[in-house]
Amino acid sequence: MIALTLVAALTSCGLLGDDTDDGNSSSGQVEKTKIKAAMLPVVDVAPFYYAIEKGYFKAEGLEVEPVEAKSGKEAIDSLINGSVDVAFASYPAPMLAQSKNAAKFTIVADGLTAKTGHIVVVAPPNSPMKKPQDAPGRKIAITAKNTFSDLAPKSVFKTLGVDYGKIQWVEMGFPEMIPAMERGDVDGAVLVEPWVTLAQKRIGAVPVVDGATGATAEMPMSGYVALAGEGKLGSTSPKTIAAFNRAMVKAQTEATDRTKMEPMFVKYAKVDQQTAPLVTLSIYPTSLQAARIQRVANLMSEFGVITGTLDVNQMLPKT
């Protein structure tokens, strides 16, 4: 479905045009100085906003303007139709598109690697689903199929010998999941932070399966991507990409300090002041490592989302 959406966007809106505009650098230090970046209101992007507030992008000769997107699909679509230059994305979306030749991407910077507690199958206290073995036959809310929302728990269920094929996956947005559990419409939900913490606070939700354990422990979850190919930023502007990456690395190096990230959670991920200190602080990588990100493509291949193999090396910036 993601690939078809991208194909439709490519057909109806056209690919990004020439990168040259009034924002191009006259000094030659970067090919493009003005960058628009599609962002989601999630904890993953806290270092991005920290980099803006601390002037790390400006120090690299970049003027970065965040453009809030309501969903991952909207972020990727805005990248394809040319309204932004970079998009924050959960890795399965661009990888699926790349595997289908619907679009080509360059991973500009790594985003977030999940620690235990970041992506969890939770259930309300009165749910009949108390342990992983109770999951078959139950309704579990996910954001979309063939994403980390179902792939991560499937991997853990597989390791535990649980028949995940009998689970009824129900698609909905994160804001809908807690009310759906309260009403009994679903027996549980696959949540990521800060929704995991919010569900625990609001309805006393309990963890059933942690999606960042076993084969998916410390799994790369998200990153920042640009379109690649003839005339596209990901292929034509290596200095710009390198500058963006350096600013992100500087911010993510400081992201181990909760006192620096929690204000970003509150301001940009819409987490309330009381919840921010409780949110699991995951890993914000400080380097792009093909072998590590390849784990995502391998997981997608394992569960039939990608046919054959996808070489993540082809998605990293050329140096």
Rank of each mutant, 00 (worst) to 15 (best):
P220I: 10
G231W: 08
G161K: 08
G234D: 12
L227I: 09
P220V: 13
P238G: 06
V186T: 09
T240N: 07
A199P: 09
L198Q: 14
P207D: 10
T236W: 01
G214P: 06
K239C: 05
M172G: 03
V162I: 12
T236F: 02
V190N: 07
P179S: 06
L198K: 14
V170Q: 08
L233H: 05
D185M: 10
V162D: 00
A212R: 04
Q200C: 02
R183N: 15
E182I: 14
R202D: 12
L227D: 03
T213V: 15
G211Q: 04
A217S: 15
T197E: 12
Y224E: 02
M219V: 13
S235P: 07
T213A: 13
A189W: 00
G231H: 08
G173C: 00
G161E: 02
A205I: 03
T213R: 10
T240L: 07
S235Q: 05
V209Q: 01
E218M: 14
I178K: 01
R202C: 00
T236I: 08
G165K: 12
L160R: 13
A228M: 06
W195L: 13
A189R: 00
A199W: 03
G229E: 06
P175V: 01
G211M: 04
W169M: 02
M181Y: 08
P220R: 11
D210A: 11
A205Y: 01
E176R: 14
T197L: 04
T216F: 06
E230W: 06
Y224P: 03
Q200D: 05
Q168M: 07
V162A: 00
I178E: 02
V170H: 02
G173H: 10
G161W: 03
R183K: 15
Q168T: 05
E218L: 14
G165D: 10
E176K: 13
A199Y: 07
I178G: 02
V170I: 15
K239L: 12
E171V: 05
P238V: 08
D210V: 08
E193N: 11
V208T: 02
G184T: 08
G231P: 09
T213N: 13
E193F: 05
E171A: 15
D163H: 00
L233Y: 05
P194H: 11
R202I: 14
G184N: 08
A228H: 02
A226S: 14
V206L: 15
